[in-house]
Design a protein around this nucleic acid. Structure first.
Length: 167
DNA sequence: CCCTGATTCGC
DNA sequence: GCGAATCAGG
């Protein structure tokens, strides 16, 4: 789905009429809310005229009208597989074993799982994410294909943990 | 949990 | 330019 003139025009119209990004996305079909927001920004039409911003919570006009108005199913968004590789880039002493991990503990594995000194970084991490700032830095890289991963790993990255998730 | 727009950054 | 992931919030 590309932003041809027609779709762009519809986007502008609906957006300037006050539709939310997700509403516009549903209307257009084939694009996500993020795509709409991104496009809106690129078009520079971020600011809409809001004579009186109802301000209050999610400006729902009427629950029952809205529910009934929900139209037929849109599109199954197709996403590429996201494969992440976390190479070992930082050497620190583990501060924790699996059992010592708390919700705030960095999950970065250190050492060889077969060795007794294997553990996890365990240092303070942000609420989001699995790793402390140090380990999160540069730890992730996005790949689109298995071949790309091979190329990367063959580049001499010592330890790797590969997880694949779809969607 | 549902939702909103804003921003970043690999592609 | 594109938009998923993330952020920051209602």
């Amino acid at each position: 789905m590309d932003w041809n003139e027609e779709r762009t025009a519809v986007l502008k119209k609906l957006w300037l009429e006050g539709m939310s990004a997700s509403q516009v996305a549903r209307q257009l079909g084939g694009v996500s809310r993020s795509a709409v927001i991104g496009k809106v920004h690129r078009l520079g039409i971020t600011a809409r005229e809001m004579p009186v911003r109802p301000r209050a919570s999610s400006a729902r006009v009427s629950n029952r009208v809205q529910v009934r108005a929900r139209s037929t199913t849109p599109i199954a968004p197709v996403r590429n597989p996201v494969i992440r590789v976390a190479p070992t880039i930082v050497d620190l002493e583990p501060t924790s074993g699996i059992l010592g991990l708390e919700t705030h503990s960095c999950r970065w594995p250190i050492g060889n799982p077969d060795q007794t000194d294997f553990g996890f970084c365990g240092r303070e991490k942000p609420k989001r994410g699995s790793y402390c700032d140090l380990h999160a830095q540069g730890a992730f890289r996005r790949f689109q294909s298995a071949g790309e991963i091979e190329a990367w790993t063959r580049r001499g990255v010592p330890e790797k943990r590969v997880q694949q998730r779809l969607g």
